[in-house]
Design a protein around this nucleic acid. Structure first.
Lengths: 129, 129
DNA sequence: TAATGTGTATTATATGATTAATACACATTA
DNA sequence: TAATGTGTATTAATCATATAATACACATTA
């Protein structure tokens, strides 16, 4: 559990993104049991309702599921998992392109900067080999 | 004046970013007179106080300056303008790298996606040739 | 001179989103 | 049976932001 919460963005949104990233990376595996609302709230020092809100939205999006009053689990639907991954990638790519175009930086130059910057501080978060 | 305001982010922040982009692109030239607070508020259908807040911050950052009670102007300090441009580029690059790393997408793959996506919808906003 | 248009400042209010505080039903288990 | 841990739901409180309502000094201009 390695989330850094910022105050600029709603906490439940940040929680959802974190889960999406873990799912996309495969750190959270299909069918895997996840922390209960209260447990997550404790870990992150947030209100249980905020955790609940995040979980509720994730459930609506099919990312997790809940049977009875058992702890929720990561979806077993591989299609959804694939979509999450693609959504995150697409979002990153789109954001980058929009930003670059908005200040008229040529694509090649922007890509070179990415490569350079990437080499400067390579892979901070590995952890899954 | 082509700002699309979203409701997720403070309006004055969005206004500041817009000005930064225009300055970085050179659309707003050094010394150029800009809209008055009230005029901007009218154009964007926002409150004059919100415009004032944006301008005040930009003044503190040295992006614009005001002499007496004349309309404010874009800074003539080329160094600052250069810095704004670099700040925006660096921000875009960093955001992209963080996003890509957070889901373990190899850099090469990410860059290829950028190139592909870029070709699909090339330069929407030219306008300054 | 009066009107208008600048920038600037202060105080109060409204709004919407977020978070907090509780409560309830249910199931498991000690 | 009582306690604990689930998910779920409702209502209240908090908070940052935006807006509203004014006011003032100054300069230009009709």
């Amino acid at each position: 559990m390695n989330i850094k919460l910022n105050s600029r963005e709603p906490v439940y949104i940040q929680v959802i993104r974190y889960f999406k990233e873990q799912i996309a990376k495969g750190v959270f595996e299909p069918g895997q049991e996840i922390s209960s609302r209260r447990e997550l709230a404790n870990k992150l020092k947030i209100n249980p309702n905020t955790a609940q809100r995040a979980y509720k939205e994730m459930e609506e999006q099919g990312l997790i599921f809940t049977e009875g009053n058992l702890p929720s689990r990561i979806t077993k639907n591989e299609m959804i998992i694939k979509q999450v991954r693609e959504e995150l990638i697409l979002e990153a790519v789109s954001t980058f392109i929009v930003a670059v175009q908005s200040i008229n930086v040529p694509l090649e130059e922007a890509i070179n900067l990415v490569k350079k910057k990437y080499e400067e501080n390579p892979n901070e978060q590995e952890g899954n080999r």
